[in-house]
């Protein structure tokens, strides 16, 4: 199995799909890469020659921000928001939705599993 940019080991899918296993590469980027390097989109990832793999890797690194670099970039953006103390930064700090969604219900992706608060109303007799 070929390795592109370190960790990624796409399987025996068509390269158009296999490349999307790389963080930061979707169908659009994947297609662009194939066109730019004039590869056959129907080749399976395992059938790529070493030279082709190397070309894909260098092309990805040069033209796009992928994998570690992209993750770092995203984190840097979030940290900038946190540091300047703007509203979006505050929402990131608290782990709440950043783009004005409701939090009365839902928002579970940001808030994580429900923390149920015990019912404080005790029935009086």
């Amino acid at each position: 199995m070929p390795r592109i940019l370190g960790v990624d080991i796409p399987n025996d899918k068509r390269i158009e799909i296999a490349l999307t296993y790389i963080f930061g590469v979707g169908r659009t980027t994947s297609r662009k890469v194939i066109v730019d390097l004039s590869l056959n989109p129907d080749t399976r990832a395992k059938d790529l020659t070493d030279e082709e793999v190397a070309r894909i890797a260098t092309h990805l690194e040069e033209v796009y921000v992928v994998e570690g670099a992209l993750r770092r970039q995203t984190m840097a953006n979030i940290n900038r928001l946190k540091e300047i103390g703007c509203y979006r930064g505050l929402r990131h700090r608290r782990g709440l939705p950043v783009r004005g969604q409701r939090t009365r219900s839902n928002a579970r992706s940001r808030k994580g599993p429900r923390k149920t608060v015990a019912n404080k109303k005790i029935l009086k007799k």
Partner: peptide, 13 residues
């Protein structure tokens, strides 16, 4: 400098 492009209200909850 980092705040350029944001709006003043974003910094006043």
């Amino acid at each position: 400098e980092d705040m350029v492009g944001h709006r003043l209200g974003e910094f006043s909850p």
